[in-house]
Amino acid sequence: MSVEVGRGVVTRRKRNPNPVSKARQRRNRLTGWLFISPWVVGFLAFALFPFLATLFYSFTNYNMLNPPQFVGLLNYKQMFTDPLFWQSLYNTFFYTLIFVPLSTVVAIAIALLLNMNIKGRAIYRTIFYLPSVVPLVASSVLWLWLFNPSFGFIDAFLRAVGIPGPGWLYSEVWVKPALILMGLWGIGQPIVIYLAGLQGVPHELYEAAYLEGANAWQRVRNITLPMISPVILFNVILGIIGSFQYFTQPYVMTQGGPSNTSLVFALYLYQNAFQYLHLGYASAMAWLLFVIILLATLLVFRSSAKWVYYGGEQ
């Protein structure tokens, strides 16, 4: 914050040959700080402090009730020999690696359809966005019903066409695909962002391509996708972060079962913290997750030079 406030003052001084009085400057700065103070105080107390505290706790044995005891890197070492840690990490990677690409393709496809000039477009757009308005816990309970092998709509439909339901949330093989499928239902947010991106693509590009004889797929491939690639980058990064932190749905729907096949990283972290009272270990896990997310985001950013096109720069 201070950097930006300072910089503003410096540039103004350059433009204005008569420098503003020192006292006035100080007063302005103070006013600025006072204006943002509710946010700063909140950030320091409820974000930065807990954030740093978990770093400290990750080097301790801590159970909330007794003072933490310093144990060095023990919590981090322990992770490598904890089979459930690996299982939960695998589950989270499985979910992320399938859900993020899949949801990107589906969201773009839907956005393209919703961008077409058809009757009732506003209604369709609303329908696709609606699931995002439903609270996560409520939609989880709803899907618990839909996936229900005895009374669920999905299995009733499958039975009607002669396919036995796979047991979904109660099957070790199908529980992760079921959760991914359910995730696709809630991608209204990225769809809206893609739609905005699509509307920013200049019309004359399409006209020119059309005159050159490009077909619909060629227009999408060579105009639409490059032009919205910054939007794709944004959504992919948000998707990666969200997927690594995936928690609510398995917490409500499966509690990690069956046989830990839906025990995602964040859920195991929660169990360690609040069921087994290993807050130190859970803090270490949280930091590892932070590092993983950071690396994944960096990786995507690095690669973006190859596939993201910022029109204005060329």
């Binding site: 019903w145 092998p149 005895s150 047991g167 109660y170 099957s171 069956p258």
Partner: peptide, 14 residues
């Protein structure tokens, strides 16, 4: 196994 738990837990889940 999975059919039985689907049946049992499916009922209670519902």
């Amino acid at each position: 196994f999975s059919q039985v738990s689907a049946f049992q837990k499916g009922l209670s889940g519902a």
